[in-house]
């Protein structure tokens, strides 16, 4: 069988004459690209090392307890039995409380800054909210212990109990360190992050949307309500998720005010515990290797949850404000 050779000559000359981009053709260019690429590769390398270390160290606990680790509530270092149920519950509950309080404030800041605030007020207000993100966690904790908790005990909780004491959320004696205190501190801490991302989302809403509503005779507020917010809905949900990601992993301030007790209680007035707080408190006291491994499994669980929440947040935000480096900075 003969194969009829196509006229390679002309075609080959054509492709040979096609010069692609000469990126890095010059040796110094190539060296430069190699250096910055190597530095960039440090990031995947770090993440990989982090995942591997967490998994290896958590493995004994994963093997021993299986799924029961996530669903049981026994945390007994003496018997060397560990179940992270209360930690996972406490982490989610404190974050939900925080979001319930933070979202109205954060959205208000974002809406106020993009739509209503007089020009002279925008920069200072934005700056103040930004500073809120700069306050170190441990300072929030200090303030929580010595200012917020006494204030809750004397001013907030007695009337709250009087009015809503019949609800399961406000049962029991209030000693101070509690889910309520943790949730409030977390709320204050995540407001700047949610506000910053929401503000970017609202800024990314085309002004034609706003004008279309205004042209229909809507007031400025109605325009926000019927045009701006719906347009940015996905991004705003993403902003909240990002705040959730922050709240889930926040450690110091929460540890200092939440009470650190391995219990599941619906009452906000009772102490709780979070995954991050448990690691912070018990890591250096872990006497057995299984105890340590259980704490690593707590860390791994927390890591997986925050990665999922953050990934979802980014995808949502990118739907309205594409490609932004979400959450690297407040405002």
């Amino acid at each position: 069988m003969t194969i009829i050779a196509p006229n390679l000559g002309a075609a080959a000359r054509g492709t040979a004459a096609t010069r692609r981009m000469t990126r890095g053709a010059n040796p110094a260019d190539r060296a430069y690209q190699a250096v910055v690429t190597a530095l960039a590769l440090a990031l995947p390398a770090l993440l990989l090392a982090l995942i591997v270390e967490l998994t290896i160290n958590a493995w004994p606990s994963i093997e021993r307890f299986g799924w029961a680790f996530v669903f049981t509530a026994t945390w007994d270092p003496v018997a060397d039995v560990y179940g992270a149920g209360p930690l996972i519950f406490g982490t989610l509950a404190s974050s939900v409380v925080a979001l319930l309080l933070a979202v109205p404030m954060a959205f208000s800041v974002a809406i106020f800054l993009t739509e209503f605030a007089p020009r002279w007020l925008r920069r200072p207000l934005g700056f103040l909210v930004e500073l809120l993100a700069a306050v170190p966690s441990v300072v929030y904790g200090l303030w929580g212990i010595f200012v917020l908790i006494p204030f809750l005990r004397t001013v907030v909780v007695p009337p709250l109990k009087a009015a809503f004491g019949w609800l399961p959320f406000f049962q029991g004696v209030f000693y101070g360190n509690s889910m309520l205190a943790g949730g409030i501190i977390l709320a204050v801490m995540v407001v700047p992050y949610i506000a910053a991302v929401s503000r970017e989302v609202l800024n990314a809403v085309p002004s034609s949307q706003r004008e279309a509503a205004l042209a229909l005779g809507a007031t400025r507020w109605e325009a926000v309500w019927m045009a701006v917010l719906p347009y940015g809905r996905a991004g705003l949900v993403g902003a909240v998720m990002l705040g959730l990601g922050r709240a889930l992993g926040e450690t110091m301030a929460v540890t200092m005010v939440i009470g650190n007790r391995h219990d599941i209680s619906l009452s906000l007035l009772q102490p709780g515990y979070t995954m991050a707080a448990a690691i912070a408190n018990e890591f250096s006291e872990a006497t057995t290797s299984l105890y340590l491994s259980a704490l690593f499994e707590v860390g791994l669980t927390l890591f997986v949850i925050t990665v999922l929440v953050n990934a979802a947040a980014r995808l949502l935000v990118w739907r309205t404000a594409p490609g932004r480096a979400v959450g690297t900075r407040a405002l």
């Binding site: 960039a40 590769l41 990031l43 995947p44 770090l46 993440l47 090392a49 982090l50 270390e53 967490l54 990002l242 990601g245 889930l248 992993g249 926040e250 450690t251 991050a276 690691i279 912070a280 890591f283 704490l295 690593f296 860390g299 927390l302 890591f303 925050t306 990665v307 929440v309 953050n310 990934a311 980014r314 480096a325 979400v326 959450g327 690297t328």
Partner: peptide
């Protein structure tokens, strides 16, 4: 790299600590 950077930015600092 961009995705990994965002994942690391969202990672709780206590986890970086035990790492």
């Amino acid at each position: 790299v961009r995705f990994v950077a965002d994942v690391l930015n969202g990672t709780p600092s206590i986890i970086i600590g035990i790492f």
